[in-house]
């Protein structure tokens, strides 16, 4: 059964882990979150006591101001960051779409990037080849598929990434803001595909500042503020009623 369960998850970015020969230290912390400590021991508490549970079919929208911890939470869910505190239990095959510069090879063609992406997800060349035409068709990139990835516009890159990731049958799909780079017609298509995924008993977690996108895709909404869960509610457009924060 596909599910996500977070229990009191915390994540701390330490800012001065590296050893260096330079004098300690003039590098400054980034704005937006909670910078604590001083000197060599500065750290950012990006997530703090985050608990929630998602089950098959849930579509969660992550909202909150810049620096609230949305991207960090997605990366914890994906397994890139090991949480500094608490427990993460995830059942299901996870795929994630972060920003465009992440996880793609800029010099390689779109087609080659699809292959690489598939290999990374543990597919064989033959299995990827089988899905290749579907992926290209869904992305509507046409002849651009054989140009290097670096020649793509943001929206084109988003199309490629989304098409590839969803064609590889993830059970849990994590998406950061940039999927919004696609144009209206593609967002409509993408939304349908996400609906299918959720209906096949998958889970979607989408971080976005776009109210429209969240409302049209999501059934639940998690508001983060300074790394803490402010509220977890049902999306009124989809279902009535509010769940209390866990």
């Amino acid at each position: 059964m596909v599910s996500i369960k977070l229990d009191n998850v915390g994540l701390v970015y330490k800012l001065h882990e590296k050893l260096t020969l330079s004098a300690p230290d003039r590098r400054v912390g980034r704005p937006g979150g909670r910078i604590e400590g001083s000197g060599r021991k500065q750290f950012v508490q990006a997530l703090d006591g985050v608990s929630f549970e998602l089950k098959a079919g849930d579509r969660l929208g992550l909202v909150g101001p810049n620096g609230a911890g949305k991207t960090t939470l997605l990366k914890v869910l994906y397994g890139i960051y090991e949480p500094s505190a608490g427990n993460v239990a995830i059942e299901g095959k996870v795929d994630a779409l972060f920003n465009i510069n992440i996880g793609f090879r800029r010099e390689a063609t779109g087609r080659r990037n699809i292959v690489l992406r598939g290999l990374i997800s543990g597919w064989t060349e033959a299995e990827i080849e089988e899905k290749m035409e579907d992926i290209i068709a869904f992305s509507e990139l046409g002849d651009f598929i054989d140009l290097p990835f670096k020649a793509y516009s943001q929206g084109m890159a988003a199309r490629l990434a989304f098409s590839a990731a969803t064609a590889l049958d993830p059970e849990i799909l994590l998406m950061d803001e940039w999927i919004g780079a696609g144009d209206a017609s593609f967002q409509e298509k993408a939304k349908r595909r996400m609906d299918e995924l959720a209906e096949r008993a998958g889970i979607i977690v989408l971080a976005s500042h776009s109210e429209g996108l969240i409302q049209s895709v999501c059934t639940k909404r998690l508001t983060l503020r300074s790394g803490r869960v402010e509220s977890l509610t049902m999306e009124p457009a989809k279902r009535a009623g509010t769940v209390a924060r866990p």
């Binding site: 990366k75 994906y78 397994g79 890139i80 972060f98 510069n101 992440i102 996880g103 793609f104 990374i120």
Partner: peptide, 9 residues
């Protein structure tokens, strides 16, 4: 960096 931050390889 780009792959380390974007994948769980």
């Amino acid at each position: 960096e780009s792959f380390i931050e974007g994948t769980t390889l």
